[in-house]
Nucleic acid binder design. Sequence first.
DNA 1: TAATTACTGAACCATGCGGTTCAGCATATG
DNA 2: CATATGCTGAACCGCATGGTTCAGTAATTA
Lengths: 117, 117
Amino acid sequence: MTTRLDTSFAALSDATRRGVLEQLARGDASITELAAQFRMTLTGMKKHVGVLERAGLATTQKIGRVRTCRLGPRRLDEATEWLDRYRTRWDERFDALERVVQALTREEQRNARKRRK
Amino acid sequence: MTTRLDTSFAALSDATRRGVLEQLARGDASITELAAQFRMTLTGMKKHVGVLERAGLATTQKIGRVRTCRLGPRRLDEATEWLDRYRTRWDERFDALERVVQALTREEQRNARKRRK
DNA sequence: TAATTACTGAACCATGCGGTTCAGCATATG
DNA sequence: CATATGCTGAACCGCATGGTTCAGTAATTA
């Protein structure tokens, strides 16, 4: 089973596609324009845009002979949400670890003082 | 060129690996335990752990014959950072779009009122 | 109408991914 | 010592990916 989260993260795992998203955030662009900017074939760029489209990160519309690409619905929320939830637990875990380390350190210092006595 | 961001996002694009991370957030685990939980070969699970390790999301340590896996350094910050930066611009863009739409709507309403006169 | 432009689809290629099996090797356990 | 356990590496499989070329088709422009 391949979830939407899978396709979102997979779409983001390519530098070219992240670049395209950043470009689209600055304004709509045609396939030709994107292909030129990233030094790539039209066909190649179209595939990347297809991936972004399937992940819901971009939408396209063909008017006349030019296909205009723009940012899609805010599907990134899912990815961000997962990272946030996960990072929280991660941080909790590291904080707990730190507390243990600090406790051990204090213990160590007490023992050191005791030894010096 | 394949950046660290690439490998981070790629590592997160698989449901099994995200599951492993969630599991590790609840506590350390051996390869055998993880393999059992996700109904998979030891070899298969080891590969997943390897991917997480290479992405800096997990670390492992072999003591005796068991390899214990735990969460790695907070490498996720990079991914979160990118998403945040990107989402900001995204939202700005959508907000701008909304303002335009609203402006057009108000214009439309004014015209409608004018027409009714 | 002729030429150019913008995209599209099929086919191909090398590489990598997710997963397996199988044959080991090292460490515990009886 | 013998056996079971836990992991590891190599090799394989089917399929997806990132990219290309080539041969179109449809829309503009001269």
